[in-house]
Nucleic acid binder design. Structure first.
Lengths: 112, 112
DNA sequence: CGGTATCCTGGACGATACTG
DNA sequence: CAGTATCGTCCAGGATACCG
C-alpha cells in the first residue's frame, strides 16, 4: 500500500465517505442498485424513515451526483430515482465493504 | 433495538460504514496504515482535533476491533496505536474508495 | 403521489482546564 | 505524555401536519 498522499489527498477517502454516510444512504443505495424506483416504492422498503428525511438523503445523493431524479408528467405525479454512472461505479466498492463486514461481524448487530 | 445479523444483511455495508464514519476516523486510519504511532505523534498530524475527541475516535476504532492500543510501562507513559489485522484488511478497500474519489472529485475539495 | 413547513431532541464534536 | 472532567454548541434526524 502506498502512502504518498498529500494534505488534501489524504482526505479523499473522507470526502467519499461523507457522500454515502447519511443514516439511510447505504440502504437507499442498496435498493437503487437493483434499478430505478419511485419515491413511495422506496419509502415502503425503508419504513422507519420519515418522508422528509428520506427526501433529504435523496437530495444529498443527487447533489453528490450519485443518484438521478426523473419526473414523468401527469397526475398523480411519478418520480423515479436511479443511480448515475458515477454512483454505479461505487457499487463494487461498497460490495467489497459488505464482504469485509460479513467476514468480521458475526452474530448480533446493533441497528438504529 | 437488537436484531440478528440475518435481518439486516442489507445493512452490512452500513454497519461497516458506521465503524469508520467518525469525523476523524478516516484520517486516523490513513496515518495508522503507515504503522504504529504514539498518541501525541498522531495528534500532531491532526492538529484540528481536541485531545478529547481524538481519544474518543480512537476508543471507538479500538472497540470496533480496527485499532489496537499498547501501553509501555514507565514515565513518561508511552502508548501506541496500530491497526489490527481486521483493520488492515480494510485498507485496500478504503484505497479503492480513495481512487474512486480521485476520479470523480475534481478541483478544490472541502476539508473540515 | 411526492412533496413542504414547523418544531423538537439527542448526541457528536469542540474549548478549556486539570491530573497521575 | 496521555489522558479526565466540564460545559457548551450545532445540526442531523425525527414527529407531525399540510399542500398541488
Amino acid at each position: 500500500m502506498r502512502h504518498t498522499y498529500r494534505e488534501v489527498e489524504q482526505c479523499a477517502t473522507k470526502v467519499a465517505l461523507n457522500l454515502i454516510s447519511g443514516k439511510w444512504k447505504p440502504i437507499i443505495f442498496f435498493h437503487l442498485s437493483s434499478g430505478a424506483m419511485r419515491f413511495t416504492e422506496l419509502w415502503r422498503e425503508i419504513p422507519r424513515v420519515s418522508k422528509k428525511v428520506l427526501l433529504e438523503q435523496l437530495r444529498q445523493l443527487e447533489s453528490a451526483g450519485l443518484v438521478e431524479r426523473t419526473v414523468q408528467n401527469g397526475f398523480p405525479p411519478e418520480v423515479t430515482y436511479q443511480l448515475t454512472h458515477k454512483g454505479a461505479e461505487l457499487a463494487p466498492i461498497l460490495y467489497r465493504l459488505d464482504q469485509w463486514a460479513m467476514r468480521h461481524i458475526e452474530g448480533v448487530v446493533q441497528i438504529s
